[in-house]
Structure formats: structure tokens, C-alpha cells
Amino acid sequence: MSKTVIEVKDLFKVYEGPVPVKAVNGISLTIKEGEFTALKGPSGCGKTTLLNMLGGLDYPTSGSILVGGNDITSLGENELIDFRLRNIGFVFQAYNLIPVLSATENVSFIMLLQNRPKEEREDRARQLLQSVGLTGKEDKRPGELSGGQQQRVAVARALASKPQFVLADEPTANLDSESTANLLDIMLKLNKEEGMTFVFATHDDRVINRARRVVAISDGKVVSDLSK
């Protein structure tokens, strides 16, 4: 049986204001190693808030998030930064690459933050770019790459730190069908071959259709959880 990577228990996130908004309203969820999970739902359903909390970018109002058995909601801000660096790979909707660095440098930068030796950084960056199909584009800067190619660099970057899992927030929102299919092929391959756990927040059917587990969220609650 696969190991549990993330275990969410009774998670609430309430945004205080004149009318308090329960963005996440009592979610409990377990993600196992090697899963390829999509959190689906319309805009404002709470999937991005949930993803941010899974990624240690935001604190819940109550509840716990156990990653590898450790509750990350009890970590301080600096510990959380270090936790993110060592355990989580991020893929963002707007790619968010560093425009002044080449593809290789963007990928190896994360490993620099982890104080890995130069040789290892360069080897792994090259290898990862190759696995996302960007051989020959290593020295290109983001501005010289297409949206799909940039997102593939972002996937390589997410994997560079050897994370426990990768969180992707609407990774295909800015991509055309071909690039989306291509990106998903690559992610599925990495999932299958390397056993990398992926969690998406998306309302893109192209992603949902290829996910092996789909968790539907509505009004901050899990309304269905289907594994294919």
C-alpha cells in the first residue's frame, strides 16, 4: 500500500470581514504517494485556497495538514519557507520564471537555494529539461520560449528540489490544446516513471479528464472524490 504524503483533517479557512467568508469549510483529504489528483471546481470554490494551504503558503483558520506525518500548520514562517524548499514543487498559472535567467539557470536556481554543489545542479537541470522535452533550449531565456515551453521549464524547476509532491495551480490556463496535451503527457510520464505525486487545482476539463483521481470542491467542501 502506498505511503500517505498529505493528510488533511477538518480544514477550515475563514476570511474575516463584514461578512465572514468560509473559503474552505471542513475539508478532510488524504493524498497518497504517486497520485495524480485534480481538485476541480468553479472559480471561488476554495480549491486554490486549499492548494495554498497544502503548499504552506497560507495558514488555515483551524484543522491540520500533515505532510510526511508532520503538521505544517504549526510551523513558523521561516520554518515553513524551509519546508517548502525541501518538500514541495510549485507550478503556477503564469509560469513565474525568472526572466533574466536561462532555462537551465531557472531550474538550477532552486537547487542553489538548497546549497547543492554546482556540478549536481547543472547535471540535474540538464537532465530535467531533457525529460520535459526541452533539449536544445537549455540556454534560452523565458522570453525566447513559447508559453508551453515556459510551463515545461516550470515543471522541471518544480522537480529540481526532489520534492515529496508537486502542487500545480491552473497550470494549463494560459496554454493552447497542443501545449496542454504535451504538458500533461510529460507530467503523467514523470508520475508514472518517477512516482512523483501531483496535485492540481483546475477547472480545465483537459486536465480533469486525464487525472486519475478527481476531487470536486464546491463552497469550500468536498462534494465528490472519484478515483479512476
Binding site: 519546508f83 503564469a94 532552486i110 528540489s161
Partner: peptide
């Protein structure tokens, strides 16, 4: 700020 936000998200600490 997007780029800086990304760096903080992926784990660049405040000192760096």
C-alpha cells in the same frame, strides 16, 4: 513582485 512572490513561495528565505 510576481517574481519575488514566486521566489518566496518556492523557498527563498528572507535572508537570501
Amino acid at each position: 513582485r510576481r517574481e519575488l512572490g514566486m521566489l518566496m513561495a518556492v523557498g527563498m528565505n528572507k535572508r537570501k
